[in-house]
Design a protein around this nucleic acid. Structure first.
Lengths: 348, 348
DNA sequence: TGTTAGCACTCTGATAATTTGAGTGCTAAC
DNA sequence: GTTAGCACTCAAATTATCAGAGTGCTAACA
């Protein structure tokens, strides 16, 4: 059986209507709603075909139809239109990303903003700094037998670590270590700090090889704290708007997953090749890589702050979410982010 | 009418029973349950009195009684017994605080632990650093016209700030500024850095007074980011266990408040005088200073990491929460925290 | 005077019966 | 291929019924 254009139109109409109402939609509704002027009976015939194709089902005899996961998939892949959103600056919700100093705050703000404008739950993972360059490394003596290492990465991301070195060293030694380390490491990407370089530095450090070793450990662990990237979430309460999610354990499970955050980070992190511009991906129902969200759909995208500093955002809603609006909202937010960030960088 | 000891016993029994079941409790139940051996009829007479005193009510005729807010208040103030909890190390839930490096992680862990062992929702505010001393201040040139300030407080709390100074300065100047600032500021509490000291430093800085001024601004703003202290929450899902909270909008409101966190921080922050050891306070129903939680009870306590570094924790549950268990769990956790922290400090 | 048994009364919550209405599939006519 | 008509189905809403828990009151009792 072929999917002719009328069947597509009907499927489209069913999905759009179900998105709004959350109720199974019947043949009469479609007949009145859609611009193709055919009788309910005709629609019924077509719907029977669509059901046979596995694109829609009846929750029970004598109910209207609702889309299946497969139906949504087809919708997302082929039927969905590129919706043009009003520029955020002109829309009534004034959902505009403000420039803030700290990346952390910006991401939190982004999560909130997306939650507000999509009216779904959102998550934003903190950026991974892979590919980032070491800009500056500063050691300072900190009391007895301790050193403070301040590590500055490209893009002015700052990390600290205080660690034991087990012995007191003089200020001059610290100074020369600083010099040594900066000379050898500055400008390198973190992956580039390999054994060869480490050995070389140790040789030059002579008697202080041990300390160098500890410093490098400290650097690794300071960076390493971002191995499990932070996840910011917002709009959890929006889950309650959708009866299909708020009933039973589902809501509880979802809220809990959003709260724990670890699972989210892991699930979002797994794929990281950039296909197109923002790498927008749609996961429907069972496709969602988080167990507790198998009743949801999740739309993810990749953002980029500065070159190589990337993270993921995700919008979590019911399967009948308004994919078109979500996608265009994401795009809009991304372009705001681009503007802000290019500008912010440009100013430096 | 007086509250004789039998009435108290009955009230106690009603509250304890209602805590377990969540169902209105009738005279028969009390008669069987409580050790005072009187007939249901007698209990009924007493219950009528308790109702007249406003300590319990009937949800409707021919239902059992449930405690009123006033009833709970009396319970908490007078009836509640000090429950001795098994030491956490011996209990089955192995809810033991582990020592971790970063304060942030420790607090998050504490929120989770409390949520797990009380089975209610929890919140933990980040510490306020008032009273903390400046241990070390480090300026480093950072590209053109920028300085990196690293601020270390007592207890090895580290803050960063990168800021513009509008002009290039030589490494030597930075070095001497470092010296100047450290000589004048180290060991001071943050409130002690007043105009007098600032003026003095500026005078000594001579031509670099402007820069000093900017550095101090940077210090202030780095510290200032904690004016709205961070709030960590956990166990939101526990709300769903209690029908009186999970129905209607209540759950949604609570979850949303927990997620937003700002309101929580504000509400917890308002009182900060330490009355007794941990300053445990119980807010029942309308007493709770957060609107969305008027149907809940909240138990708060103050923790102290190092001297003067204090924050609050809060346990959020239904009004019929097990106050005794919550209080003893808090005490237990606090003493764990003390142990860890004294030790951690001792090691330094 | 406090306690208790007995009893009529009340109200909720569960279960069952009934009704309504939306929606379908099928058939036959166009 | 399309449509009107119609019998049929099923969920959801409405109503009826019933059992049970719990009460308040009264009168008897210690």
């Amino acid at each position: 059986m072929e999917l002719d254009s009328r069947k597509k139109a009907i499927l489209y109409a069913i999905i759009r209507n179900y998105q709004e109402t959350g109720e199974p939609v019947g043949s009469r509704t479609i007949s009145k709603l859609s611009e193709l002027s055919v009788s309910p009976a005709t629609i019924r015939n077509e719907m029977a075909d669509l059901e046979e194709l596995g694109l829609i089902i009846q929750p029970h005899t004598s109910a209207g139809r609702i889309p299946t996961d497969k139906g949504y998939r087809l919708y997302v892949d082929e039927l969905m239109k590129d919706q043009k959103l009003l520029p955020a600056s002109m829309s009534d919700q004034t959902a505009i990303l403000k420039r803030v100093d700290r990346v952390e705050e910006l991401l939190m703000q982004m999560a909130k903003l997306l939650a507000k404008s999509t009216r779904y739950a959102t998550m934003v993972t903190g950026p991974t700094y892979s590919g980032n360059k070491l800009k500056y490394l500063q050691l300072s003596p900190m009391g007895t037998g301790k050193l403070l290492a301040v590590i500055v990465l490209d893009g002015n991301i700052i990390k600290n670590n205080i660690f034991d070195i087990g012995e007191d060293i003089s200020d001059e030694t610290v100074l020369s270590l600083n010099l040594l380390l900066n000379n050898n490491l500055n400008g390198l990407r973190l992956e580039e700090i390999n054994l060869g370089i480490i050995t070389k530095i140790k040789e030059e450090a002579g008697a202080y090889a041990d300390i160098v070793s500890k410093v490098l450990d400290a650097v690794a662990s300071a960076i390493g704290t971002d191995e499990k990237p932070k996840v910011y979430t917002s709009g959890a309460r929006n889950i309650f708007q959708y009866p299909e999610l708020s009933g039973g354990d589902t809501a509880s499970e979802i809220i809990s997953t959003l709260e724990e955050k670890e699972d989210l980070g892991a699930a979002l992190a797994d794929v990281h090749e950039l296909t197109d511009k923002h790498d927008i991906q749609v996961y429907i129902g069972d496709e969602v890589p988080v167990d507790s969200m198998k009743d949801c759909s999740v739309v993810t995208a990749t953002y980029e702050l500065t070159s190589g500093v990337r993270g993921k955002i995700g919008i979590i809603g019911p399967k009948r979410m308004d994919y078109e609006r979500v996608v265009s909202t994401i795009k809009d937010t991304m372009s705001q982010l681009d503007t802000i960030f290019k500008k912010e960088n440009g100013e430096e």
